[in-house]
Design a protein around this nucleic acid. Structure first.
Lengths: 195, 195, 195, 195
DNA sequence: AATGAATGAGCCTTCATTCAT
DNA sequence: GATGAATGAAGGCTCATTCAT
């Protein structure tokens, strides 16, 4: 017997990610993945039940990685500093792993997610500490008292869009440094002295 | 290849939009569209050169509609009021036509757009006045001096995400009224006395 | 538009029958059928919903043909003569169309039939007059009072097996003429003076 | 390729039989068999050269079992009693092992047998004594002077069909007892005083 | 001897597109 | 202009078989 190969599993997910990133989710096909990963098409089924199972695994895996990277926060520390740190975490991780963010965005909240049977709970697994962090900031009256989701729309999303715009060449980081993004987000979310 | 019946052309686009919205972009097929639109599959080729041409037309059409709806701004008026009005326009149009916003988001800035041969220029057609409006605000030192794209990330995107969250049932508009979104966006973008 | 072509539909069924007859039911594949029928594989789906639908149509079509051929009986006439005539009908039709009988036998009462969703009722459609004929013979005390199915086992089945054996070269019709089969069946089923 | 574990070999054949009986011969796959038998798919090749070799072994094994069960006849004894006993043997064995009969019928004389390279000789191995028994009956002018195969069509086949009909619920053994089947077969085959 | 990961041919089906009608 | 039958490539998936372990 040959032992199942974690490296191969990783290669499959990476290949799929690659295809999604360069050709879009609609262009994903198992034969492309197999060719890209350097394996036979049938082999995919040793690692995943079917195509959906694989997309599901990919989505959750990337989400998990991102969660690990951007939730390393001092939950009970100073919210202001924490917020600053949070944006840095996203930015730093995005410098190296923008593809993961883009992939998650590509899946979006589109109908595909439903067909993959990913529950709300699964989608948010790993982000619990982030929610706690926000609650701490709110209770200390440093963050505006709004929904967690809304805070992400002003803190997480703009960073991702910023990084993508830079990568696409639509934005020049020398003219618009990340500090400005942080400032805008901070102004939006942090209550006092937000100037 | 000349369109004869504009109503039929519209039906085709609407059907496609429908399918994208309910099943995702990967599930779009001409036979589904034809059935949904109540026409024969071959007839599609009277109205569009091929599948990509149709997706392209759909994307540009929705983008145009949105542009018309949200760029009705007094470009040279008071930027503060204008900003307020701009967000209202998005919100109001989104109440009735969220599907169009979602469709545009579904296409994203993803590789699909490239395969449809949609140039940056085409994608932004119709938004020129919006850019002028922003420049006016910046020159009057009411808006922060940042990129047009970044402003959209703090003014347009959060409204759309807000509306989608409400539609998905993830947000309760009674607890988080639109006024709060406007406030956050305003705080981020408007320079002084941004209360 | 090109009108759907009954001749083509017939060719598909004939090709399938051919394959079943020469290679067995397990060897039926749509690509073989298409090649055999001289059409593209996709075209099959213009005529049948899927593979099962086609097998179903084939089964019922052959059953119907057989029913037409062997149920042309004088239901209320002399049962003895009728029985004789019935066996002749099977024999005569089998001379020209043994493949249809063999096909039906190949489907058998095997699990395949269940997967084709053929109800008992459908399977026996067309044979109602045969049942009436048997009832007439029973009520006139010419046939033994046994089940319709059992009568077939002694009248229909042996003829088919006889014809197949001849075709296979396992039986020499000169040594065992059909008259002998008729005699044996008659002896089994007809009550009096059956010697 | 040498069998080591006869119990395992038996399990493989039983599993295959099971699948044929419940899903039909077209649904047989080695992976199903392996799972059903509780072994790894590769292990099948220790016991059988390939799939056909296994089907072949299954067919011959079941045929052999049946032959053993239904050929325990006093070849030179009274043919009338022998005929009666013969039908009882089929009936009795069929009560417990109908699946074996059904399996043989499923293979039929269909093209599958040819693809399994089963010769006429192999198929009839074990039935030699039965043929002798028939010849004895014929030479004593108790049985009609017809072919061995034809006799089976009137003595063996109807019993099997009878048992299957009962199992399928198409026949009620209380209304049609086995005695009636025996009577019909006897009437057909035994020459004098066959009532 | 036994395992099950790996293979790639072949399965059924759907697809975008063409074209006779 | 409109139709839908026809095409064959490509889709996802299962298969029999091999072979490193």
């Amino acid at each position: 017997m040959r032992a199942q190969d974690d490296e191969k599993r990783k290669r499959i997910l990476d290949s799929t990610s690659n295809i999604i990133m360069t050709q879009g989710i609609a262009a994903v096909s198992l034969s492309k993945i197999a060719k890209n990963a350097g394996i036979a098409s049938g082999t995919l089924y040793t690692y995943f039940k079917d195509k959906n199972d694989m997309l599901r695994a990919l989505y959750l895996n990337r989400k998990e990685r991102i969660a690990e990277a951007i939730t390393q926060l001092d939950i009970n520390g100073d919210p202001r500093q924490g917020f600053n740190h949070f944006m840095d975490l996203i930015y730093d991780y995005g410098q190296e792993h923008l593809d993961e963010f883009v992939l998650i965005r590509e899946f979006g909240q589109s109908p595909i997610l439903k067909s993959l049977n990913i529950s709300q709970a699964e989608a948010y697994a790993g982000f619990e500490s982030l929610e706690e962090f926000v609650q701490n900031g709110v209770s200390k009256q440093v963050f505006f008292d709004i929904d967690f989701q809304v805070i992400l729309d002003y803190a997480y999303t703009p960073v991702i869009e910023y990084l993508i715009s830079i990568q696409n060449g639509n934005l020049d980081p020398n003219k618009i440094p990340f500090e400005q993004i942080k400032m805008l987000s901070t102004r939006a979310i942090i209550m006092e002295e937000s100037k």
